[in-house]
Write a protein that binds this DNA or RNA. Structure first.
Length: 405
DNA sequence: AAGTCGGGGGT
DNA sequence: ACCCCAGACTT
């Protein structure tokens, strides 16, 4: 069969298949460009099943572009809590404000305008233009690169940006007349349900007959993708500081800086330790816990002006981001008097070693993720009800929930 | 081109 | 454990 016919076969069979079996998803209720836009932002690097409940909550809380544009940012972030990549939420709201101010609250049927919105890159531009407006623009995500790599037996590394650009041109050439939205969704639906990353199920595939990778018996070898570097480990000491007096029953939390990792989210106060102190978090070296506890206490005292006394170990927790692996140790602390001290087991050594002092001064200067002069000054005492209002990343949410149970 | 940005589910 | 996910942005 001619190459041209292999392409026509692919497009036509895939489109028919999609129109028969497509899933009934909340954002497919209609083609409201705002609904499409929100769904595509949420779906960036996030699975459909994860997004669905967030999407429903988000749309009921912010049903229109105007509603989103006018909402307090903390409410938007709270709706995004646990979904990850929080800059998506802030960029989405910035985009909503731009649509209100520049386009009268109507998402423009114009590629350049859509592409100019914050958080909207090449994929999302194509998705919005094709799904909401049925414009013949490609929408190439991980699914599409995988499906097309296999069907056409492409051996380019899909981790390279240049590959996506090339596949975009191929994808554009496959769009059937007048069916851009359905076809682009069909490609992704196939990648999500049939042509999956591992062990693709070729038998039910609507285009298996002319799939080059399958005909070569290489469907499980494609696509080719260089693997990512493993996340670097970071050791962190954290504290759950219990309030007293008017703050009895409350815990000290702080808001992160407005840029960078977990920007503007709330967290329990913590401190980065040098990488060569891995044994400090080794449970086989409990004698070091006194030093670690004193360290986090002193950092918090300096930062808050409060007299903070770590009392005992609470729990250890690991959390893995894409590029960092946090190994955390949490201490319970309170606002003790000068006589208060960390209460170690009998065999533990209490006191602050010279080494610990050195680490502390490094951290206070610049060694944590906070640059000098950017230490978070926003501390707050919260109870369980306050926790429901402020946005926390999941790692701290889990600790707080465990603490209050 | 490489690094920065979350978190969870599948295998 | 490792992989990937309806990617975008910064350097």
């Amino acid at each position: 069969m001619e190459h041209k016919d292999v392409k026509i076969y692919f497009s036509s069979e895939l489109l028919s298949w999609y129109r028969l079996i497509k899933r009934d998803l909340p954002w497919r209720m209609n083609r409201d460009p705002y609904r499409v836009w929100v769904s595509e932002i949420m779906l960036q690097q996030t699975r459909v099943d994860t997004v669905i409940p967030y999407y429903n909550t988000f749309m009921s809380k912010f049903p229109t572009v105007q509603a989103l544009a006018e909402a307090p940012e903390s409410e938007v972030l709270k709706c995004w809590e646990g979904l990850g990549y929080y800059s998506r939420a802030r960029n989405l709201q910035a985009g909503a404000k731009e649509v209100v101010e520049r386009y009268g609250g109507i998402v423009p049927d114009d590629k350049a305008s859509v592409a100019g919105l914050k958080g909207v890159g090449p994929y999302t531009t194509g998705a919005i233009m094709s799904i909401a407006f049925n414009r013949p623009e490609p929408a190439v995500d991980g699914n599409v690169m995988r499906v097309l790599s296999r069907y056409f037996c492409l051996e380019e590394d899909i981790a390279k940006p240049a590959t996506r650009v090339r596949i975009e041109k191929l994808a554009a050439s496959l769009i059937p007349e007048g069916a851009a939205g359905d076809f682009n969704q069909a490609l992704m639906e196939l990648g999500a349900l049939v042509c999956t990353p591992k062990s693709p199920s070729c038998l039910p595939c609507p285009v298996m007959e002319h799939c080059a990778a399958r005909l070569d018996g290489r469907e499980s070898e494609l696509p080719i993708k260089t693997k990512a570097k493993p996340p670097r480990p970071e050791l962190r000491a954290a504290a759950i500081v219990l309030g007293s007096g008017v703050n009895a029953g409350k815990v000290l939390v702080r808001q992160r800086p407005d840029t960078g990792l977990l920007a503007q989210m709330w967290e329990l106060p913590h401190l980065l330790l040098p990488a060569d102190k891995a044994d400090w978090l080794d449970e086989k070296a409990p004698k070091e816990q006194g030093e670690l506890a004193e360290l986090i206490g002193r950092m918090l005292e300096e930062d808050t002006g409060l007299l903070i006394r770590p009392r005992r170990w609470f729990m250890d927790a690991d959390h893995v981001f894409s590029h960092i692996h946090w190994k955390m140790r949490f201490y319970l602390a309170d606002l003790g008097d000068e006589s208060g001290a960390y209460a170690p087991a009998a065999e533990e050594t209490v006191g602050i070693a010279a080494e610990a002092e050195a680490i502390y001064s490094v951290n206070a200067a610049a060694a944590s993720e906070y640059k000098a002069g950017e230490m978070p000054s926003v501390y707050r005492w919260i109870d369980k009800e306050d926790m429901e209002k402020l946005p926390f990343p999941n790692l701290f949410l889990r600790i707080l929930k465990e603490f209050w149970e």
